[in-house]
């Protein structure tokens, strides 16, 4: 289970698009959530996916890490077809992907330190205790939570929980980050902080990211490229300028707020 191929920046660069989704469909019972969706995430970019609540954004990124099985279509991540991977291959691939949950999903029976230690111990098995502690402090510092080591998640504010969760995700050095509504439910100032953090992480850890949001400010701050979903399909794709200058009613309504 150990001994995965070492992933160096070089091997990362061999993929021009780190995620490639073709004709993805996914439904639950009678409801078709994603319809024939295709998109690409290029190496090193921040791709923002916009869409109303319930438009299937979370379902989309859950399919990417196979928390949900897609019904139809292919998903290639770092050159591997996600749906065809066996459990070992899937586990190896998931180690290269960071997933920030909408709710944060901090382990509520553990302190912040234990939360960060949890993936670190199990994935970076070679680190000594000292190295681990150093890494934890460093990452917490990076997300601006230096003095919360021994706090429980319930003792932190919503914004701090998001940051802690982000710290837990980036501590294992993922190549790809998937953010599920990182700024939803936070006040504008805190949101700006998180958006800035997303940009910092992209620079510092050289990740490629998909950022799911319906928060235009967050999209403005982070996006290299934007894809808008509507009814499970790609409605429009472009840069932030394309979106701002669009005369389309739906997009206008999004950007007016």
């Amino acid at each position: 289970m150990t001994n995965n191929k070492p992933v160096t920046p070089e091997s990362q660069n061999t993929f021009n698009s780190v995620i490639e989704i073709n004709n993805l469909s996914k439904g639950f019972a009678e409801q078709q959530v994603l319809k024939n969706l295709s998109l690409e995430l290029h190496n090193g970019e921040n791709l923002v996916i916009l869409g109303k609540s319930g438009s299937g954004k979370s379902v989309l990124i859950k399919c990417i890490v196979r928390l949900l099985n897609s019904d139809y279509g292919t998903i290639k991540v770092l050159g591997e077809n996600v749906n065809e991977l066996k459990s070992k291959g899937l586990a190896a691939l998931r180690k290269k992907i960071g997933f920030l949950f909408q709710s944060g999903a901090l382990y509520d029976s553990m302190t912040i330190k234990q939360n960060l230690e949890f993936p670190l111990i199990r994935i970076k098995k070679k680190l000594t205790k000292m190295e681990r502690n150093k890494k934890i402090e460093e990452v917490l510092e990076n997300v601006g939570l230096a003095n919360t080591l021994d706090k429980m998640p319930s003792e932190l504010s919503g914004g701090m929980q998001k940051r802690a969760s982000l710290a837990r995700t980036i501590i294992v050095d993922p190549l790809i980050m998937l953010y599920d509504e990182p700024t939803t439910g936070l006040d504008p100032v805190t949101s700006d902080g998180i958006s800035a953090l997303i940009n910092d992480i992209q620079k510092k850890y050289k990740t490629s990211s998909i950022i799911i949001t319906h928060d235009i400010e967050c999209a403005r701050a982070t996006a290299d490229r934007i894809i808008m979903l509507k009814d499970g399909e790609v409605y429009l794709e472009g840069t932030i300028d394309d979106f701002e200058n669009s005369t389309d009613e739906l997009i206008q309504s999004f950007f007016k707020e």
Binding site: V65, K95, F101, Q102, D108
Partner: peptide, 21 residues
């Protein structure tokens, strides 16, 4: 109840996607 609330608040999913079994 404990695992149920971990499941509902996506903590189990978070373990799953970070390959921590």
């Amino acid at each position: 109840a404990e695992l149920g609330s971990m499941k509902v608040s996506e903590q189990i999913d978070a373990m799953e996607v970070s390959s921590t079994h």
